[in-house]
Structure formats: structure tokens, C-alpha cells
């Protein structure tokens, strides 16, 4: 179990570092997903250490996975919209006279 506890800590740090320092929004989102996985791992290790096996953290993590995919989907939709807007502005600035570059 120590292996999985340390894994949880390492994944937490990797996710946190990526989340704070990445410039690209998509990378930030990936890091956030790694971060949530680290927290889920901590929950499940705690459930495993209990005697008998504790099903409540399992149910909470299942809920958490669905909430994470919802968050990721909304954030991705926003990232795609933002990128589209930035691209339009760049195209306008770079290729103004040529009209739309498609």
C-alpha cells in the first residue's frame, strides 16, 4: 500500500505543478485530471486500509469521476471557443487585406 500512497503524492505534485505552470489551457486541463486522479487514489488507498473494505469512498470516487468528465468537457468546449477567437483575431491582424483565409 505504501507504493500507492507515494504514487498518490507524486501524481499530486506532477498534476499541481503542471496546473500552475502550463501556458496552454489544454495542458492545464490534463494536469487537472492527473491531480484529481491522485486524490481519488488517496481515497481508495484509505478504503483499502480499512477492515473490512470500505465501500463509501468507492462510491464517492465513482461520483468524482463523472463530475471530472463533466468539468473536462465544459472546459474543453471553452478552450476550443477561446482558441477559435484568438485565431480569428490573429488572422485579422496578419492577413487583413487578403480577406478571410479560411
Amino acid at each position: 500500500m505504501t507504493v500507492y500512497l507515494s504514487l498518490s503524492g507524486v501524481l499530486f505534485l506532477i498534476g499541481l505543478h503542471g496546473f500552475f505552470t502550463a501556458r496552454s489551457l489544454l495542458r492545464r486541463l490534463l494536469a487537472l485530471n492527473v491531480l484529481t486522479t491522485a486524490v481519488f487514489l488517496l481515497f481508495v488507498v484509505l478504503a483499502r486500509l480499512a477492515e473490512p473494505l470500505d465501500p463509501v469512498p468507492h462510491a464517492i470516487v465513482l461520483t468524482g469521476i463523472v463530475v471530472t468528465v463533466s468539468t473536462t468537457a465544459v472546459a474543453l468546449a471553452l478552450v476550443v471557443r477561446i482558441a477559435g477567437r484568438v485565431r480569428d483575431e490573429d488572422d485579422d491582424a496578419a492577413a487583413g487585406p487578403r480577406g478571410d483565409a479560411g
Binding site: 483499502r48 465513482l62 469521476i65 468528465v69
Partner: peptide, 18 residues
């Protein structure tokens, strides 16, 4: 890893959703 931690429900959800 979830299977190793005796959490097969989470393993299924992670593979399918995560």
C-alpha cells in the same frame, strides 16, 4: 491500479469514462 486496490467498480468507470 484500481483492480489491484480491490476497487473493480472504479476500474470499470475509469476505463470507460476516465
Amino acid at each position: 491500479a484500481w483492480v489491484r486496490l480491490e476497487a473493480p467498480d472504479i476500474a470499470l468507470a475509469e476505463a470507460a469514462i476516465g
